[in-house]
């Protein structure tokens, strides 16, 4: 037991040093694409572009100021749906809403603007991780300056998933993270907000927004986990134009999910970070729901929880 604890401690320190020795630039592939949206695009057009390119977020470019104008994320689409529910008569306004109008929607709803922050690509990767945890955002834009014109360059956008995958691919020490999850205090416990298959989807969307979470677990009458509604599911809801159906249940809204959805990952408190990191290396997983032997929901481990542990614990 003591060996395992010591190994874990040394492994975490080694992974932390790895994050301090690398830059965000090192995470970038040798050749990659970056899709950027002009802020004068219509919101509904930008939704099509995200879905066509199989992405859920994109940086915005304001051609008038020749500057980076923040990130378009699923939170913006959640705000649009909530705005519609508060103002059902404003349907045609939403139809004509441009990306540079999203800030006004935030003001109308009184929701805080997502502080995205940004970082230079050649700063340590550790600093990018700390900035993401502080801004409670799951992604961070890498911004440099054009040598000649001092204009901003959006080099790329790093996500927590990409960073943890980079760690799982490059840090052999992840194999020594053998302490049980139950000992690590990284599980957000069962009092987390959950819902039922029959809960109206608008209530679930409100939970996503008011709790600032990116998923809501769906349980059955016994408390067993049966599915999860994710913030990114909202994109499919809007695309289908069915968000204005007040009576829609979250179970019905999940019928919109495409067949390429990989499913909800679960684990138990007996699992270890070594196998969690190995799963991140192999699959596009964004959170692990913790269940007990009979499938009862106990809590959730998000990528933020894992990153926080690596950055600050032990």
């Amino acid at each position: 037991e003591q060996n395992i604890q010591l190994e874990q401690k040394l492994a975490i320190q080694s992974i932390r040093n790895f994050l301090k020795s690398k830059t965000s630039y090192d995470v970038l592939p040798v050749s990659y694409r970056l899709i950027v949206l002009d802020t004068s695009l219509l919101v509904k057009k930008s939704l099509n572009i995200l879905l066509q390119n199989n992405i859920v977020s994109a940086p915005l470019w304001d051609a008038k100021t020749s500057k980076f104008a923040g990130l378009l994320t699923s939170t913006d689409f959640i705000n649009v749906i909530q705005y519609y529910f508060c103002n059902p008569d404003k349907f045609d306004l939403i139809d004509k809403l441009q990306l540079n109008g999203l800030k006004d929607i935030e003001k109308c709803l009184g929701v805080p603007s997502l502080d995205q922050g940004s970082i230079h690509p050649f700063k340590p990767l550790y600093d990018a991780c700390v900035k993401m945890i502080e801004s409670r955002s799951r992604r961070i834009p890498l911004i440099d300056q054009d040598e000649e014109t001092q204009r901003e360059i959006i080099v790329s956008v790093l996500t927590q998933y990409r960073i943890l995958k980079f760690v799982s691919l490059n840090c052999r020490e992840t194999r020594f993270l053998k302490r049980k999850i139950r000992e690590l205090n990284i599980v957000t416990d069962a009092s987390i907000d959950s819902c039922y298959m029959t809960t109206p989807v608008i209530d679930v969307i409100q939970m996503l927004s008011t709790r600032g979470v990116s998923s809501v677990p769906i349980i059955d009458e016994h408390g067993r986990l049966v599915n999860v509604y994710e913030a990114v599911d909202v994109l499919g809801l809007i695309k289908g134009g069915i968000y204005n159906d007040l009576s829609l249940s979250v179970g019905e809204a999940l019928m919109r999910r495409g067949d390429d959805f990989e499913g909800v990952y679960t684990c138990t408190v007996e699992d270890k970070l070594s196998t969690i990191m190995d799963t991140i290396r192999k699959a596009r997983v964004h959170r692990f729901f913790v269940v007990d032997g009979s499938g009862l929901l106990q809590g959730v481990i998000t990528l933020s929880d894992i990153l926080k542990y690596i950055l600050f614990e032990e």
């Binding site: 986990l225 049966v226 599915n227 999860v228 289908g240 069915i242 159906d245 009576s247 829609l248 249940s249 179970g251 019905e252 809204a253 999940l254 019928m255 919109r256 999910r257 495409g258 067949d259 959805f261 990989e262 499913g263 909800v264 990952y265 679960t266 684990c267 138990t268 007996e270 699992d271 270890k272 196998t275 969690i276 799963t279 692990f288 729901f289």
Partner: peptide
């Protein structure tokens, strides 16, 4: 490892469950 994918969360299985419950809207979506 007890890491697994929740079977009821797979789209095909979820849709079959919803159909079984005879949900009206589910037919259209």
């Amino acid at each position: 490892s007890t890491i697994a994918i929740l079977p009821s969360s797979l789209p095909q299985i979820h849709r079959a469950n919803m159909m079984q419950q005879g949900s009206r809207a589910a037919m259209k979506i």
